[in-house]
Design a protein around this nucleic acid. Structure first.
Length: 408
DNA sequence: CCTCCACCGGAACTTACGGAGT
DNA sequence: ACTCCGTAAGTTCCGGTGGAGG
């Protein structure tokens, strides 16, 4: 029997619908989001009548159904006949995080199916792209609904550079064409960073997505489990365990679904017919350590060295300061042949590492001793070290020997 | 109350790069 | 061949800043 064959012949606990446990899966109906969907439908309904819907902000923490709701409305919208053609454009600003990228994305979607060639991925000015878009919308009546997911990222990086022109674009358009924005933000204080002029274009249309309660999470899990697993594979106890284990801090449906899916995969691989508690605990561990390894592995070289320096420094003393760290960092650069960055730049890398959850920092004043950032790694030393060692950059560097010899 | 340390962190500027248009 | 464009990464400059010690 071939290596893969046994996985085909062997009975799986999954049905063909195992994707129902992925956060990208769009169910027939979204549980516990009726109120939000009603309001969104109310706002977007003007598009169905051929008028411009107002701009709207969705806000709420991760895994509260914001993206799913936006996608859900997209499906609804596309299955409705409208007097004016409606284009629904989804942009994830985590991926497309530059003003040019957003503008190019919109233009390409709008020009899709027309004779005009879509604008290139670079080379033109943003004003040019704006002209292309306005020009097309003036000649062809269209209602555009642009979803900007993770918009916080875009605003954090570029301020109101792109949101401002987009929220004002209707002033340059003729009757019949319009552009409406759906901004999706994780940060509840997102609006504070917005320009007053941009904010006013959202005129109070804000929809809050509160965290799911544990009962709601269980309903969602049960709903999806029914699709993804064969009957009897998941007990009520497992549903409850996933709901509590996966959502300690807030009701994040994504994480809870991931947990059940991975637990299912673990059970499946060990050839069991039902998911047991130990599979869920194992899944939680797997997900966590995979996250950390992936975060470290994808770090750029310079950040890896900074991370390594923190690990080495913290191993003996539990925490370290920027000054100490920078000295170690420079020593490591010497050993690896990389040119060290300035301390200013390194502090930014430290901030990045904290953002990834790999380290924790806090600034503290020591009076005459100055003010500095104290930091410590919040991941297991050995795990992190072995991931870093995989990098070719450190092939010739005997990290462990250096560490023992205290060469930095 | 003032000083002064050792950094923090905002902002502007520089460099490098890939691509477009002419 | 040359200029212009946007973006990413990094540098330079510099005005803070919390609180122990004088």
């Amino acid at each position: 029997m071939g290596l893969l064959e046994k996985f085909v012949t062997e009975e799986s606990i999954f049905t063909k619908e195992r994707d129902a446990l992925r956060s990208s899966y769009l169910p027939e109906r979204l549980l516990h989001r009726d109120e939000q969907l009603d309001r969104i439908a109310g706002i977007l309904s003007s598009a169905v009548r051929g008028a411009a819907p107002s701009n709207v902000i969705f806000y709420g923490k991760t895994g509260t159904g914001k993206t799913a709701s936006a996608r859900f409305m997209q499906k609804e919208m596309l299955s409705t006949t409208t007097p004016v053609p409606v284009k629904y454009i989804y942009i994830n600003c985590e991926i497309t995080d530059t003003p040019y990228g957003v503008m190019q994305n919109i233009c390409s979607s709008v020009l899709e199916g027309s004779k005009q060639t879509p604008p290139p991925s670079s080379g033109l000015s943003i004003e040019k792209l704006y002209e292309i878009l306005v020009g097309f919308l003036k000649e062809n009546r269209h209602i555009l609904i642009v979803v900007l997911d993770e918009v916080d990222r875009l605003v954090e990086k570029n301020g109101n550079d792109i949101l401002y022109p987009l929220s004002r674009i209707n002033e340059d358009l003729v009757k019949g064409s319009s552009v409406s924005l759906i901004a999706i933000a994780n940060d509840l204080h997102f609006t504070e960073r917005l320009d007053a002029r941009v904010l006013s274009s959202f005129s109070g249309e804000r929809i809050l997505f509160p965290p799911y309660t544990s009962t709601e999470l269980k309903n969602i899990l049960r709903d999806r489990a029914k699709l993804a697993f064969k009957e009897g594979a998941v007990s009520e106890g497992i549903i409850s365990l996933c709901a509590t284990l996966g959502a300690q801090e807030h009701g994040d449906a994504r994480r809870v679904l991931d947990l059940l899916r991975v637990a299912g995969e673990i059970a499946d691989r060990s050839g069991e017919k039902i998911i047991r508690e130990e599979h869920v605990y194992k899944a939680k561990q797997t997900i966590e350590s995979d996250c950390i390894s992936e975060a470290i592995r994808t770090l750029p070289h310079q950040s890896k060295i900074v991370m390594l320096a923190i690990l080495l420094r913290c191993c003996g003393t539990l925490q370290t300061t920027t000054g100490e760290l920078y000295a170690t960092y420079k020593a490591l650069c010497n050993h690896t042949g990389l040119t060290p960055l300035t301390q200013r730049r390194v502090t930014d890398l430290i901030t990045d590492l904290e953002g990834l959850g790999l380290i924790q920092t806090n600034v503290r004043s020591m009076g005459r001793g100055g003010r500095t950032r104290f930091m410590h790694a919040c991941i297991p030393f050995e795990d992190a070290l072995s991931v870093i060692e995989e990098d070719d950059l450190f092939k010739n560097l005997k990290i462990r020997k250096l560490f023992q010899a205290k060469l930095f």
